[in-house]
């Protein structure tokens, strides 16, 4: 697996049993982390803003809910708002839509992963964490087809295994890792990207 030095975004798809892993990953990343992070976490409607606040307290990065037509930036984590799908455009702006649910979910992981893969091709990193459904499997497969980096949380370490298992089966991911290994891989990619930036 060749690691590039200009990834546009890291996508995290998360459902039941994922909050702790997301918190751990975000805690491990430094303030100057070079790649924007986009998270789709399945959750109940009406939990407006609370999750962003919660994660913000645990991270050196800025965590916020995604705004319509906002351009993604390094050092920032964007959460899909409840009841909207999150899409990544080729110009790296975010689109929110109210299209029908996908895999019974809105936001759906597949929608973000599929549009990001289409918009940024190989320059996307997709991560599927713990969850009790199959959302994200198709999206991760699209990232793999576009030659991005595909990572699935090791089902052995997942509180709920069906989402990682479905993603492994559909996408044959590049990495199957524990939460700690996911954090250190992201740090390696970050260091690689950062040292490349200093060359200029």
């Amino acid at each position: 697996m060749k690691i590039l030095n200009d990834y546009k975004a890291i996508l995290i798809g998360a459902s039941a049993g994922s909050l702790k892993i997301i918190t751990n990953i975000l805690t491990a990343l430094p303030k100057d982390f070079t790649i924007p992070i986009l998270i789709v976490q399945h959750r109940r409607n009406g939990a407006d803003g609370i999750m962003a606040e919660l994660l913000n307290d645990h991270s050196q990065l800025r965590v916020k809910e995604a705004d319509e037509k906002e351009k993604i930036r390094a050092g920032t984590v964007y959460l899909a708002p409840p009841n909207y799908h999150l899409l990544l455009e080729p110009d790296l702006t975010l689109t929110l839509t109210i299209d029908e649910r996908v895999n019974y979910a809105r936001p759906s992981i597949d929608v973000l992963f599929e549009t990001a893969a289409e918009s940024c091709k190989e320059k996307i990193i997709g991560i599927i964490c713990s969850g009790g459904n199959t959302d994200g499997a198709f999206g991760l497969q699209q990232i793999k087809l576009n030659k991005g980096i595909t990572i699935v949380q090791n089902p052995e370490t997942a509180e709920v295994k069906s989402m990682p298992l479905a993603a492994i089966q559909a996408a044959n991911p590049d990495y199957i890792l524990s939460p700690e290994e996911i954090s250190s891989l992201l740090l390696t990619i970050h260091e690689n990207q950062k040292s490349h930036e200093f060359e200029y």
């Binding site: 899409l87 080729p90 839509t97 599929e114 549009t115």
Partner: peptide, 11 residues
């Protein structure tokens, strides 16, 4: 229209 939306629907 949003490119990402159109492309997703088209595919």
């Amino acid at each position: 229209y949003s490119k990402a939306h159109v492309k997703r629907r088209l595919l």
